[in-house]
């Protein structure tokens, strides 16, 4: 085992006898330039373009209640103000994959969102739970705070840096699962949730738990 490691490293060092270090110039756009309203517009346009449904609401609990039926998995920390009434809410206490498969939907918040690509990012932070929750049930309803939407991909990656450094698993989601494997025709809904609903929520005070 360590013989392989030693030999591999030796091969690399031998191969690199002639090289110079390379400096990286980052002339690309790291920070966006759009105003807030345009960032939100772009996010909505792009995530809808990839098959997600977007709902804007000042009262997410009500909006969500109208969407959901049956059994919905949430995390314990999901604030009461985001919890819909009229559905069976199940707090995740280590449900097995098979149990999750019996559940109709997952309701979560997210860590950040990106306008340019129409993406949401989950890092297991408060309100989000572990990865399996938003994977196995067929519908994922995600509450996105307007303040959490950034414009560019480098900004999104930057936002997620503290979570990555902490070793938290991250998933970046852009629309429902999809495949283009048959004649490159896009089909939405494969193994991941077949439906993704984003509830845009502009009240920044509801979820005030810091990310790091």
């Amino acid at each position: 085992m360590s013989a392989a490691r030693d030999e591999l490293l030796a091969r690399i060092r031998a191969a690199l006898a002639d090289v110079e270090p390379v400096a990286v110039t980052r002339a690309y756009r790291e920070v966006g330039t759009l105003d807030r309203a345009s960032v939100v517009e772009r996010f909505v346009e792009r995530i809808e373009d990839y098959g997600a449904t977007v709902i804007r609401s000042s009262d997410p609990a009500v909006a969500v209640a109208a969407l959901l039926s049956g059994r919905v998995v949430i995390v314990h920390e999901l604030p009461a103000s985001l919890r819909p009434s009229g559905v069976e809410l199940i707090e995740d206490d280590g449900l097995t994959a098979l149990q999750l498969d019996e559940i109709d939907a997952a309701l979560t918040t997210c860590a950040a969102a990106c306008a340019e690509t129409g993406s949401i990012a989950l890092d297991g932070g408060p309100g989000q739970g572990r990865r399996a929750l938003t994977l196995v049930p067929d519908l994922h309803v995600c509450i996105v705070r307007v303040a959490d939407i950034v414009e560019t991909v480098p900004e999104l990656i930057d936002r997620l840096a503290p979570s990555a450094r902490e070793g938290r698993p991250i998933v970046i989601v852009s629309g429902p699962s999809a495949t283009s494997d048959i004649e490159l025709a896009r089909v939405e809904g494969v193994h991941g949730p077949r439906r993704l609903v984003v509830v845009l929520h502009d009240c920044p005070t509801v979820m005030s738990i810091p990310q790091t």
Partner: peptide, 19 residues
């Protein structure tokens, strides 16, 4: 030819209670 693929998974080692 997509702006972003539907899923990007990022993980480091193992995480207690997740995965």
């Amino acid at each position: 030819g997509e702006r972003m693929n539907p899923y990007t998974s990022l993980w480091a080692g193992v995480r207690a209670g997740d995965g």
